[in-house]
Nucleic acid binder design. Structure first.
Lengths: 352, 352
DNA sequence: TGTTAGCACTCAACGAGTACGAGTGCTAAT
DNA sequence: ATTAGCACTCGTACTCGTTGAGTGCTAACA
């Protein structure tokens, strides 16, 4: 693809994209000649622009308007022309302060990450908890609530703490509940769902015939926690930022986007499910196949927890988003998260 | 106040408010005469409207436009002229289906309540967890996470389950942790913070001199959970609905409101702190003293949990909101919640 | 005395007409 | 190959008259 573009075309395309990202206004040949001194006249630029348009890299909203980058143009820019930029010390400190304290509370950490990202980029951000079929349970404890219900407190090996309230016809006494917790722990802790032995599960069920329905529910809760990415928690921040962009200032358009962003399933799809942790992915405009979000781009990446489970981070902005900066910020924050998560899982603790 | 208005003025004011709620357009004397057959001519209506304007109950956006209700006008309407309306069976069923299942998970219940309310009213809704200084702890259990941290699982007497991760220099063994949990339970469970004896707290601390810092943290967590309404969880829904109203279709205005609604402290203030459970309160326009929300009204109420702790529900819409319907829906949902909550706390369970 | 018809007046909204200017593509000169 | 020049396009902004919904006032009426 790049072979088709000579040095000059590249410079012109870059100028158009840079300018459009900054101003959201179509840009014409004269303006390019004035603002970016490429040493050529508007007429020459016009000829080149005509070629760029033929290649589908830029578009004209209407005759006698300037040119605007197309999705394909952004794609070219992102793939071949974007140069990364380091964050300032100030920004790095901002990130550190925002997400480095109180990391014991993993939900809080994620909320803070989402917030920091949206503040730094001025776009909308989504952060999900880690999931993955190789996620392991570290510890489970049943705690009585009342005569009809108990809560299963589950701690995964990335040290997220989860509750699931279970109802039972009769709830075991606290002592039995403790013993039961220990027996269940012996079966599930330190294992992925695949590694949990069916026989051991049955033997626990047989040991407590009175409470088999409760115990079944407990195992179900464990499996659903470890496997079911549908009810993964998500933390979003900075929705309102989108309202600040002229492309979404039309209330109806904005409403449609907001509606889409309220649908959890859609967001999960949007964040993707590739396990390749290290790469930042960019979806430009229509590349996400959601009609409502066709004027949005998504910059997304995974962060790593433990050996293999991953959480996802996504940044949603207008197609005309500042990719360079967004990628820099995201990559910096991913680095920070990975190191925090590595520290969290370092410690052996009490698992059997 | 009502004495100042004769029957006819009341009818006219009512017509203006009803119409404006429906159309968001200023309404003139001719239109009133045509649409609401009050048996009088536009000229007469004009005279009456002139009086209503003098009383500050309606306003003219500009000469030669129709009239629009003022905040004072809405206040008059809400206080004296609103007649309640029963929900349809369909709506009642909708509420029942939305919030009656899976009530074991109290956070889910609240999320569903917020969602149901925003769907029924088409406004933005906020629901907070119950708080109150007389909230009691039902049960607490410490669960090990790793060699440096434990999680305190706390169950309040409204059966909300809360986690707080605590770090410690050395974490007790599981056995000691269990014993410790029992001792702490003996001090805190079934009591408000005021009722917890300082001597008993000290005696627990003395019994486990090795873990005094951890235990201190546990008590701190308990007190903060029961008392600190600042970090109460809130569930909002239907933010985007506001974008549908012409008064907020201006993106900048909408952004300001969204910004305000992202501030938790402000929302807490907005929901108020009166303990009077039974009454639905209405704040019209500028009556909430927040500049950003001067074009919004808030309909709010408390729901009751157990004997005295309360949660709050608020509905935020344009000043031109449908008060009648909003009040009906809210009062119906409050009724439903109160009965659910009453059932939840009915059961004695395992507290000591 | 309260009600209403009539009338002059106001003013936002709308549409037609016009000027402007940013932008284009094409052609011919360099 | 580059560029100056030029005719052309078309959205934007502006003016200006028209329209119509609305008002307040006055005088007539029941």
């Amino acid at each position: 693809m790049e072979l088709l573009l000579n040095e000059r075309k590249i410079k012109i395309l870059e100028a158009i994209i840079t300018d459009y990202i900054a101003t959201a206004e179509p840009i014409g040949s004269r303006t390019i000649a004035k603002k970016y001194n490429l040493g050529i006249s508007p007429a020459t630029i016009r000829n080149e622009m005509s070629d760029l348009e033929e290649l589908g890299l830029i578009e004209q909203p209407h005759t006698s308007a300037g040119r605007v980058p197309s999705d394909k143009g952004y794609r070219m820019y992102v793939d071949n022309m974007m140069h990364s930029r380091d964050l300032t010390d100030e920004e790095i400190n901002f990130i550190k302060n925002a997400i480095s304290f109180n990391v014991g509370q993993i939900d809080y950490l994620m909320q803070q990450t989402a917030k920091a990202l949206s503040m730094l980029t001025n776009y909308t951000t989504i952060v999900t908890e880690p999931t993955g079929s190789s996620l392991k349970l570290k510890h489970i404890q049943l705690v009585p609530i009342d005569s009809k219900s108990v809560v299963a407190v589950m701690i995964t090996d990335d040290k997220a703490v989860k509750n699931k309230v279970l109802t039972a016809e009769t709830v075991p006494t606290p002592d039995i509940l403790n013993a039961l917790s220990l027996d269940i722990n012996a079966v599930v802790s330190g294992r992925t769902t695949d590694e949990m032995s069916k026989e051991k599960i049955s033997s626990v069920l047989n040991k407590y015939p009175l409470y088999s329905s409760l115990i079944t529910d407990v195992f179900k809760a464990v499996i659903s926690l470890l496997q079911n990415s549908k009810d993964v928690h998500m933390y979003t921040s900075g929705m309102r930022n989108l309202l600040g962009f002229p492309e979404f200032s039309n209330a109806e358009k904005a409403q449609n986007i907001f509606k889409a962003l309220e649908e959890k399933d859609l967001l999960i799809t949007l964040l993707g499910d590739e396990k390749n942790v290290d790469k930042i992915q960019i979806l430009i405009g229509g590349e996400n196949n959601m009609q409502e979000l066709k004027d949005c781009s998504i910059v997304r990446a995974n962060y790593k927890v433990g050996s293999s489970s991953v959480g996802r981070i996504g940044i949603i902005g207008p197609t005309r988003m500042n990719y360079t900066r967004t990628v820099s910020v995201l990559s910096s924050i991913i680095g920070k998260m990975n190191s925090i998560m590595a520290n969290i899982t370092d410690d052996g603790g009490f698992d059997e």
